[in-house]
């Protein structure tokens, strides 16, 4: 069963977080270990498997980027997994230059400005995914998602850099 089906939601890029939360919390109650304490071992085991799968589904679908990557994989887009390297000079050059820029940013303001730019970029790219999925353009979906992963990593690094700057200024 895929993550969408598990939560009784349509497999789609756009997901209302409120309905996701509702579906998750209802099912979580249903499979909660406390309700199975007095049940036979087989049922207890089933409940813990269900609960784990449910958490996994929720985690994957809650974040827009991981949801998009998951949906892409469901749609047959092959994403490079752990340990796979990519050779996309344009993307890598962009990522390298962005990271150098972040590395050189000496003030919290400079880091914030870079982070804000990347957040906008991510938002626009995530919005643009819808039409790529509609068109079923797998290479374009893959390319866009790989770029989003690098933007996401950049945002994470910008947060870390921000914290370091704050710490050193105290």
């Amino acid at each position: 069963m895929d993550h969408f089906a598990r939560l009784g939601l349509p497999a789609a890029l756009d997901l209302e977080l409120a309905s996701l939360d509702r579906a998750y919390f209802a099912l979580q109650r249903q499979w909660h270990p406390d309700r199975f304490v007095a049940k036979p071992a087989a049922e207890r085991a089933r409940a813990s498997v269900e609960a784990a799968a449910l958490n996994d589904a929720y985690r994957t679908l809650k974040d827009p980027l991981s949801r998009a990557v998951y949906l892409a994989e469901l749609s047959g887009v092959e994403m490079p997994g752990d340990g796979k390297t990519i050779d996309d000079p344009e993307l890598l050059m962009e990522a390298m230059e962005a990271r150098e820029e972040l590395h050189d940013a000496g003030s919290a303001e400079a880091v914030d400005a870079l982070a804000a730019k990347v957040r906008e970029d991510m938002k626009a790219s995530l919005n643009g995914l819808g039409s790529l999925f509609l068109a079923g353009d797998k290479p374009a979906i893959r390319k866009a998602l790989l770029r989003l992963r690098y933007l996401d990593k950049f945002a994470e690094e910008a947060r870390a850099r921000r914290m370091n700057l704050e710490r050193s200024s105290v």
Binding site: D82, A95, K153, E156
Partner: peptide, 8 residues
Amino acid sequence: LVGAPACG
């Protein structure tokens, strides 16, 4: 120039 997109 190479990259591992899984970890960024």
